[in-house]
């Protein structure tokens, strides 16, 4: 397979949730394709369906109608077991609040996906920690790390299985501007090796991605090549 292919294909996807006696439709038949190695930002106001779209792409949820194809596999046709396997292999998650396990060291947190996948650590953890520039903090627990360091550990955890897709939900939301810039720079460096999809409210940060997808009321309002580019020199120190 060539490197330049659609790793994510979202076709006419509708997603509804039950709310009391009625139903709320969060996504209204959206179409979206993401090329392998792209860095895409998803923007939109609260309640526009950003996280729902992320969850569909992350195979944590399934569409009410339409299809979501990850690396060619239609997730609606897969069993729960197959979805878990595919998610381990293809998707890494980064969250706004990092969500590291407090009792584990940075090293152990990064190793967790390998443990769940039943895979041996053949240097993948060390390599991921090195990639985020935290080789010297492996034995530290999350409480001993700064917010930026915790997010970098979370990124190492997300990439340790070398997934095809990295989903980052407001990855800089809990960080100050300078630290956030370092995280964006790190994500940008990962793009190419893997597809990075970032949900953000910050248009300036989104400007670092290849493409911005704007969601409004469950519809894709804008999907086009990035027009606004921020000079990277303004982002401060790059990790």
């Amino acid at each position: 397979m060539s490197d330049n292919y659609d790793v994510i294909q979202v076709t006419n996807v509708t997603k509804s949730y039950s709310l009391g006696s009625g139903e709320v439709e969060v996504l209204h038949g959206i179409d979206l394709t993401v090329r392998n190695g792209e860095f895409v930002s998803i923007m939109g106001p609260s309640g526009s369906g950003k996280t729902t779209l992320m969850n569909l792409i992350g195979m944590l949820d399934s569409p009410t109608r339409g299809s979501v194809r990850i690396n060619g596999a239609n997730i609606s046709g897969l069993s729960q077991k197959e979805l878990v396997k595919l998610r381990r292999k293809e998707v890494g998650f980064i969250f706004q609040q990092f969500h590291l396990i407090p009792s584990l060291t940075a090293y152990e947190n990064v190793a967790l996906p390998l443990v769940f996948a039943g895979e041996k650590n053949d240097g993948a953890v060390e390599s991921a920690m090195e990639r985020v520039g935290l080789s010297y903090r492996m034995d530290h627990k999350p409480s001993e790390l700064s917010g930026g360091e915790q997010q970098r550990v979370a990124i190492a955890r997300a990439v340790v299985m070398r997934p095809k897709i990295l989903l980052a939900d407001e990855p800089t939301g809990a960080l100050d501007a300078a630290t956030g810039a370092r995280i964006i720079s790190l994500l940008k460096s990962l793009a190419g090796e893997m597809t990075v999809i970032m949900v953000t409210h910050n248009r300036e940060l989104a400007g670092h991605s290849d493409r911005i997808i704007e969601l409004q009321d469950g519809d894709v309002r804008e999907q086009g090549e990035q027009q606004i580019r921020i000079n990277e020199s303004k982002m401060g120190v790059i990790v």
């Binding site: 992350g58 944590l60 729960q80 077991k81 878990v84 998610r87 381990r88 890494g92 998650f93 969250f95 969500h99 967790l112 996906p113 769940f116 996948a117 955890r157 997300a158 299985m161």
Partner: peptide
């Protein structure tokens, strides 16, 4: 979160 990062129901 653990389920999101790869933990199965059995695990």
């Amino acid at each position: 979160i653990m389920r999101a990062i790869g933990a199965s129901d059995m695990q």
